[in-house]
């Protein structure tokens, strides 16, 4: 089997771990704490693929049928 990244799958949108600066802007924009964001489990196959740690926030760039592209954020939890 050739090495492949789960992120190439057509059902899986792009996931990336956010850096602190970007995260601060996002949290300020929504006026929330990071724990209030939607969650992703640290055991999730994609969280493991990008080596996300509990406490990180993952930025997800979804392809949306209505908006073209939509950003979503998930807080990595145990």
């Amino acid at each position: 089997m050739s090495k492949f990244s789960l992120l190439d799958h057509e059902l899986i949108p792009n996931h990336e771990i956010m850096d602190d600066d970007e995260l601060r802007t996002v949290l300020k924009h929504f006026n929330v704490e990071r724990e209030q964001l939607p969650k992703i489990k640290v055991t999730d196959p994609i969280a493991q693929e990008i080596d996300a740690m509990p406490g990180d926030v993952v930025k997800i760039t979804r392809k949306s049928q209505t908006a073209g592209e939509a950003l979503y954020y998930r807080y990595v939890m145990e």
């Binding site: 190439d8 799958h9 057509e10 059902l11 949108p13 196959p45």
Partner: peptide, 24 residues
Amino acid sequence: ITRTSTNNIGEIYEVFGIEAARNS
């Protein structure tokens, strides 16, 4: 692999993760 899928959402969640499950 990139275009293979199933109609079993629980299985998609286990193999491809939560975002794929949502799309599915």
